[in-house]
Amino acid sequence: MANAPRVDAGPAKAGTGNVIRDSALGLVPEVVDAVVALNAAVWDGGPLPPAEVELARLQNAQFTGCVMCRAVRYDVAVADGLTEDKVAVIQGDADEQTLSERERLIIAFTRQFHLDPAGIARDLQQALRHSFTAAELLHLSMAVAYFCGASRCAVALGGMPESMPRTEIAIPR
């Protein structure tokens, strides 16, 4: 893992207070507005509650190896009921049976998305359709797809710390 940043984000640091705009992503101003809009939309634009979206985001971060993504907790998800007990399941420190059926399915879907998207089993499809509406499944899918890219982006840009304490943040807008 690269500990040194691979680009000089200096020219991008506009001091907007928005962690996306002020990061290296700000070097491509033609695209950054669309990134900020999508980042907000995955929390606001679908029917899943924030705690479930956050569960998917954190499971995604386990696969991409993004230290920062694993350390962050979005305040809206914490307010919505996401607990560290649930996060411990994702991190492999607690039994998955402590989660609800919906939460277990969110984790299963996110794993499938990373490991073998084309190979999603009919049993998992049926279980997801039994517990979620079509709109919820579309929301979950698109959120995981976005998180997958955002998290890999953070890794690929370098500058990843070896470790980072739990950090609660607001959605950058």
Binding site: V7, L27, V28, P117, A118, A145, G149, R152
Partner: peptide, 20 residues
């Protein structure tokens, strides 16, 4: 490099969406 990394993230996500 930033533009390429952003694009790859979107391509990867979109292609996985189509497959799943």
């Amino acid at each position: 490099l930033v533009a390429l990394i952003q694009a790859l993230g979107v391509f990867d996500g979109m292609q996985r969406l189509g497959l799943i």
